[in-house]
Amino acid sequence: MIAKKLQYSVQLIFSFLFYVAVVVVIIYLAVCIFLFLRQTRFLFFPSGLIETTPEFYNLRSEEVWLPVSAKSGKVEQIHGWWIGADQPNAKVLLYLHGNSVNIGANVTRAHWFHQLGFSVLLIDYRGFGRSEGRFPNESRVYQDAATAWNYLVYQQKIPPSNILIYGHSLGGAIAIDLAVKSPNAAGLVVESSFTSIRKVLAYRNNFWMFPVDLILRQHFDSITKVPNLKMPVLFIHGTDDVIVPAFMSQDLYAAAPEPKKLILVPGAAHNNVAQVAPSVYLEAIRSFVILVES
């Protein structure tokens, strides 16, 4: 009798553990599916509220609306600002911002480039700011950047050799993709960017318990693209960046062909490189323009 009771108790324990294991597996698979389907929500943080405009710096600007065709066939409008240089025939900088807020949070940087003599086109990807469209993803932001490039080249009739492509953070990955597809651009400036989303995840070790290679759909794999660049490239990064480590710009620099430059700013974080070392930053851009023109 005692043996039967003990056997029954053991069976109950094993049954309980089995059901617990099944529940854990189901929860694990559900989380994997959630990450697979909703990962863009962990990557992009757009805002529809534009808090700062070029008028804050007394910059004369024009609103730009660029049509782009969605996969559904619907035509959606990308919003941007054109800030013309004071001098005619100035270099043009196509500004591609990072993964959060909108172009309003990037007016300060645009102002710096304008002070250096550039005309600047800032655009918001679909889903950001006043731009139309669904929540952004990798393929759509690439398409949006290409739409802005085509606007400058084919509608504004600006020679590609007069256009520099600039990208900050995730915008750097977008800028690299565009530069590879537009090899006749004058040059490329990549600030505080990364090698790939996969390598960022590996560095942070946030998702070690999940099959990242199976789940990941948003790759932004810059490290495999930079060897195909056909133009001068400038990499800028702060050494105290805790969001994207500076060694990733060093890796991008090592993989890129000549001509190239790398500027590491001691003490600078992810968003304040120019504020920490304004003279270094401005001189780096000036020197790069001279390199582009040589």
Rank of each mutant, 00 (worst) to 15 (best):
E283M: 10
P211T: 01
Y203H: 14
G117D: 08
G167N: 10
I123V: 09
S249V: 10
S294F: 12
A70M: 10
L49F: 12
I236D: 00
F128Y: 11
A269G: 14
L164R: 02
R130I: 04
S131A: 01
I33S: 15
G133D: 00
S182K: 07
G84T: 04
A175C: 00
V276L: 10
M248H: 12
G267Q: 04
V120Q: 00
K225T: 00
I197M: 08
V107D: 02
P257H: 03
I13Q: 12
Y57I: 13
V280W: 09
Y281H: 11
W149G: 00
L252V: 07
V212E: 08
Y125F: 03
P278C: 03
M1V: 07
G238K: 02
G104M: 07
S100V: 07
F135E: 00
P46F: 06
G84H: 05
F194T: 06
A268C: 01
P232M: 05
F16H: 13
V200T: 09
A70R: 05
R126P: 03
W208M: 08
T195W: 06
K4N: 14
H270R: 09
R198L: 13
Q87D: 05
D144T: 01
S192M: 04
V242K: 11
Y95D: 09
I285M: 07
V92Q: 06
F18L: 15
R126M: 07
L282G: 11
Q218L: 08
I290N: 15
L59N: 01
D251E: 15
F34H: 14
E191H: 12
T108W: 11
L262V: 02
C32D: 08
Q77G: 01
E51M: 12
G133F: 06
K71D: 14
A202H: 13
C32R: 04
I176S: 01
E76L: 14
I176T: 12
L229F: 05
V10S: 10
V23F: 15
F247I: 09
V244N: 13
H237Q: 06
L252T: 01
S69N: 13
L188H: 06
V273C: 07
A105S: 11
N228K: 12
Q143S: 08
P160V: 03
G267V: 01
A70Y: 02
I26H: 10
H114D: 05
L37V: 10
E258Y: 11
H219A: 05
Q156R: 14
I176F: 04
S287G: 11
G238N: 05
T224E: 09
N102K: 08
Q143H: 02
S139W: 09
V189E: 05
A85T: 00
G117H: 07
D251G: 05
F14C: 13
G238A: 02
